[in-house]
Nucleic acid binder design. Sequence first.
DNA 1: AGCTGTGAAAAGATTCACAGCG
DNA 2: CGCTGTGAATCTTTTCACAGCT
Lengths: 224, 224
Amino acid sequence: MSERRPGEIPEATVARLAVYLRVLTGLVDASTVTVSSEELATIAGVNSAKLRKDLSYLGSIGTRGVGYDVTVLREKIASSLGLTQRRTCVLVGIGNLGHALAGYSGFSSRGFTFVGYFDADPARVGEPIVDSRIRDIAELELVVKSHGVSIGVIATPAEAAQTVCERLVDAGVTSILNFAPSVLTVPDNVDVRKVDLAAEMQILSFHEHRKSRGLGNGLVESVG
Amino acid sequence: MSERRPGEIPEATVARLAVYLRVLTGLVDASTVTVSSEELATIAGVNSAKLRKDLSYLGSIGTRGVGYDVTVLREKIASSLGLTQRRTCVLVGIGNLGHALAGYSGFSSRGFTFVGYFDADPARVGEPIVDSRIRDIAELELVVKSHGVSIGVIATPAEAAQTVCERLVDAGVTSILNFAPSVLTVPDNVDVRKVDLAAEMQILSFHEHRKSRGLGNGLVESVG
DNA sequence: AGCTGTGAAAAGATTCACAGCG
DNA sequence: CGCTGTGAATCTTTTCACAGCT
């Protein structure tokens, strides 16, 4: 296919823009005015060609011979990610992890407002959480609809995740962040991202395994 | 280049093997004996061609006309991921998230043994955690070396992450799972994976942004 | 017949290398 | 000159489509 329309930012690039944004916020705080692709790339842990290619999807923002204006670039990335408007979110499943997520200040400071914390356990309902209280899951649809919630975060046990997901989607949520170790099935218009803690550990385990095999003999054996 | 040696499993495949493994464990629990690529793929949320290609890197495990033996396949994936031996781990940074991670049963049940929980805050040192107590970060090197820890999990604030990372690496850790919102610099032989909660939300925000732009103008042609 | 395993094609992401602007 | 922005080359991942085994 031919030309990539403005706004057609590749997935891999979108994921990195969030990193650049954080780095740039740090640079703004440090009163840095301009930054070169080389410098920014080093701080962000990527190479400069990739960084420039990523930024090129946002348009031509830099000044040749100089670099990027830190403030301008940060604004541009924030608006590309749709972060100029606050987004309302709900969190479902207030166990250990749910509490940790509720307490994470990084969400609020980055424009995400949680308007409801839900749990199915009657014993937990009513408990204080952040500046609010845990609500009964029965109220989920009501809250989602009345606040026009766009992102649902699922931190329930695996068994409950698909049902919760369906309720969120039926109520109008179109983006889901899933911490439950289960695969969610959703309609095409809904985006799901998953954070799979055990999987991350297993991927590291694979690389450990790989490093220890063939240590010192130059040979890799194995094969079933 | 030329031929892919046995054991040369692509990164993208490794990440999915962890998902297949979980699905297969569910099937074993449900006493399922064999499964086709089509069935397994559906449950795992991928297409069957990808699944078969992924499994082909482990060797020829299935039976044509029949499918895969659930137990055999699960064993094969587990051994490929190096999960036949338990791995020792440490967790550094016992705040909200650290507590949640320490309480997550999915690690232990999947072969990861945490041999130390560390924090820099003297007020927290000595507090009970899981079946142990929070230790002073000063003991980090001692514990890592004496237990031959291979995986370090970092759940500290961003400012502390790089220092903790260096201490882990110097003590011999070669794999790191980083929950702090910061980019870690490590030697080539060390693997880092990061879980960036705010970034995940921002990626969803991007897609929300994308969906809402062009709503009602007929220019949007479905969503990926 | 049915389903796996896999070459080959297509799509996507990264890196190279340099033209071109300030 | 120095640094951005970008086509072209390369590498990786996904998808297709079917040969080949049970």
